[in-house]
Design a protein around this nucleic acid. Sequence first.
DNA 1: TCGATTGCTGAGATCGGTTGCAATAACAGT
DNA 2: ACTGTTATTGCAACCGATCTCAGCAATCGA
Lengths: 331, 331
Amino acid sequence: MADLSIDVVAKAAGVHRSTVSRAFSRPEAVKSETREHILRVAEGLGYTMSPLAQALRRKTSTFIPLIVPDITNPFFAELAKTMTQAADERGYQLLLCVTNGDAAKTDGYFTAMQAMYAPFGIVAPSTKVDTDALKRFDFGHRVVVIDRVEGDSSVPTVTVDSRRGIVLALEHLRSLGHTSIGYVSGISGTHTAQDRMDAYLELSAEGSSTPLVLDSGSDPDAGARAAKHFLEMDNPPTAIIAANDMVAFAVISALGQSGVRVPEDVSVMGFDGLALGARFNPALTTVRQPIADMGNIAIELAEKQNLNGSVDHVVLEPELLVRASTSGPRK
Amino acid sequence: MADLSIDVVAKAAGVHRSTVSRAFSRPEAVKSETREHILRVAEGLGYTMSPLAQALRRKTSTFIPLIVPDITNPFFAELAKTMTQAADERGYQLLLCVTNGDAAKTDGYFTAMQAMYAPFGIVAPSTKVDTDALKRFDFGHRVVVIDRVEGDSSVPTVTVDSRRGIVLALEHLRSLGHTSIGYVSGISGTHTAQDRMDAYLELSAEGSSTPLVLDSGSDPDAGARAAKHFLEMDNPPTAIIAANDMVAFAVISALGQSGVRVPEDVSVMGFDGLALGARFNPALTTVRQPIADMGNIAIELAEKQNLNGSVDHVVLEPELLVRASTSGPRK
DNA sequence: TCGATTGCTGAGATCGGTTGCAATAACAGT
DNA sequence: ACTGTTATTGCAACCGATCTCAGCAATCGA
């Protein structure tokens, strides 16, 4: 049971270790009876190849790092979940790396990923991706980013159409009769967040209602501040769009603390479509991002790029998810 | 920039590769000037040692797997977060492995961890830990479990005193004037969950109130079912203890959907102390588990065991966290 | 001054695989 | 029967470190 090396198997099967190696990694290169015999012997011994040794020699591994800023944020958690699945369906092993927003740590993961011969990596940023940081590593082009990347289309990306999402949210609220719709940005820093905000500003103006940003901070307290701001207004909006579900939760919670009811007193929408939203009080109306698809596509893009060098930028469609946190405005 | 091996550095520094190796791994074994020179050269070249090669040769690595059933569950997410921190403070690299409750996958991670020469691993189970499964691997004793392990004290564990937690919850509710207190088990399967339930049953009876289990399922819908059950009762309890925060969320959400207010109509408590609870509506009163401590201690235990073979079982104290979801019973 | 320590560095085997190349076997065509 | 392929397998170098053993110089005690 201890110390199963390829040589042990080779001896047991009466062949050379290179044959054993081939039996596993290049099955067509070894006579089928031999191969089956070897596999049987290996099986009997409970042998598995050392991914370490393999990676070392091949100079490529199946470890693929997923770099996220904060696993505590359900968006990234859900992403991680679906990507783990997607990864090992394709024979990869996902290495979840959390940076806690520490750029230095991101760098560390990059070098680690290089050292581990990762074929590529996936980055879900919390801050605008620094192109130079990516370039600094010679695998710079083997990273897929789940966000836009400013002024550089050489790295593949997969994103959700932020503007479209905001359109959906606005349409929903307007169809409910809302004309005064506020926005709270909450987490900022990514291009995606920026895009949502910009879309809100622009579309809001087009819709002839004046944009009203309740808070544009990027810390966990943004929701509370937005609520405070809301309460102090003479003429508060009848609906609020939050930049993401977590912020929406915080807003609703803070509002509730002051006796403001959702959706009776004010409608609140999120953006993300977290599973958690269905279990919030009230269940959150939101714009759903196809998180599972994002994971799958990210891996596909990476593979494709590895294969033929193509760099794609996939933009996914968001979807409206109406639950209980929105209703017609109070008369 | 490409292909930095130890030999390259050695040549550049004009020494043998074994000296370079020592300069990094056993600094005291090389003359300080030589060492500094080597380090400087390495630095200049941007060289880092290959963790793969190191692990292969040393037969021990710094990869430490944290095996969790579901990263989407904030409890595990928070655990993962603090453990990542704890891990790399000590020079380890945490490998987050999610099983999605698939036992086969757990086995897979075990063999992987063996193959990667992980010095030890941490398991946060979703089901009662199968001692045999642990034993099947010869590193069975180098796993720390974040749950009790039935009938086998040979594997180190770190847990929170479930009974004490339930006592805190019960005391809190009783001091508020509640006499009829229900329980919803929600996620079951772990010994910890079992312990909480048992404690509730026992202590509830002692307190002369009849135990009232609203639901004992283990799926995500337990909360909804419990709420339904609650609504159908002629004489519903005035307070509910949920086995964990997530279930509490679900209960409150489902209750809210039917117009039942928390805490006005019924008080609800959780168990976990998730950060999320503070942003729930209403902010959740709960029994806090010292998640960060659990992470740190788990690693400490593992290291200690690796060192001197000691097997410890640490039981941590939970703490009452009063927020807004509990109040006196409705008259 | 000389043998014995001690300190530092180099050689080379080794960890567990992979892979280009050579060798042998098997098979086909003539 | 003989030569040219083609299918299989063995050989041995190599991936990037670690580590034991040896060699050599400097230091020490007598």
